[in-house]
Amino acid sequence: MLIYGAGGHAKVVASILSACEERVVGLFDDDWQNVIWPDQCILHGYDPLIMPIEKLIIAIGGNQARRQVAEKVVHSFGLAIHPTALVDRSVRVGTGVVIVHNTVVQAGGRIGDHVIINTAAIVDHECILGNFAHIGPGATICGGVRVGECSLVGAGSVVLPGVSIGKECIIGAGSVVTRNVPDYAKVAGNPARNID
């Protein structure tokens, strides 16, 4: 597997792949000359001709940056799902998805492309996560929630059942979201309120 990115999230993705007995054979990064990587692999700026049949994971935590990289990558995308994650077999999982240690994704959900479900997050039944969304560590997404494209649900947040979060939203860490959040909004608190 190839990884694009060399920061902290890339180390988590490498850990997931290792736990899945998947070897990281190459690492792409825009600043590759300054990358110190603990494992032996090819380091380079992105080049579609390097190992073109290997699958790739974009290991960048920022939603916008991850989307920009996805638009230029020619490689096929893989999945990184840690063995401790409990993902119901009925969940539809997109491409390039990263599901981190000790997460739970319940029945009937849909996970878009390049979504990150971070450490110990819970995504309950029938949730829909848009492309490039990021569910932060320890967040709880209750049943029937929709999270729009490129939205971030911060660490430790709770989103109540049936709530819809628009695209490119930021939900502050530790927030309790009790009602719908429009596109591009930034909310935080308990209950979550607009902070723009």
Rank of each mutant, 00 (worst) to 15 (best):
I3G: 14
G8L: 00
H9I: 02
H9S: 01
K11M: 03
V13N: 04
S15Y: 05
I16C: 02
L17F: 06
S18A: 09
C20A: 12
E21W: 13
G26D: 10
G26N: 14
L27D: 09
L27F: 02
L27K: 13
F28T: 02
D29I: 15
W32N: 13
Q33P: 08
N34A: 14
N34H: 15
N34P: 06
I36L: 05
W37G: 14
P38Q: 01
C41K: 08
C41T: 11
P48S: 11
K55E: 15
L56C: 08
I58C: 04
A59E: 03
G61S: 08
G62Y: 01
N63V: 00
N63I: 02
R66F: 03
R66V: 01
R66Q: 00
R67Q: 15
R67T: 14
Q68Y: 00
E71F: 09
K72H: 09
K72Y: 12
K72N: 10
H75K: 03
S76M: 10
G78E: 11
G78H: 11
G78V: 10
L79E: 10
H82F: 05
P83S: 01
L86N: 14
L86M: 14
V87P: 00
D88E: 06
R89Q: 09
V91Q: 02
R92V: 02
G94Q: 13
G94A: 12
T95R: 15
G96H: 11
V97N: 09
V97L: 06
I99P: 02
H101S: 00
A107Y: 15
A107N: 02
G108L: 06
G109L: 03
R110S: 02
D113M: 06
D113S: 05
H114T: 07
I116N: 02
I116Y: 03
N118D: 07
N118G: 06
T119F: 11
A120Y: 08
A121D: 10
V123M: 05
C127I: 00
L129W: 00
L129D: 02
G130E: 04
N131P: 11
N131W: 02
H134Q: 13
H134F: 11
G136H: 15
P137Y: 08
G138T: 12
G143P: 14
G143D: 14
G144N: 12
G144F: 12
V145P: 06
V147D: 09
G148C: 03
E149I: 09
C150H: 05
S151A: 02
V153K: 10
V153N: 08
G154L: 13
A155R: 08
G156L: 11
V158C: 14
L160D: 08
K167I: 02
C169N: 10
I170Y: 13
I170A: 08
G174Y: 00
V177Y: 06
V177G: 08
K186D: 04
V187F: 04
G189I: 09
A192C: 08
R193Q: 07
N194A: 03
N194T: 03
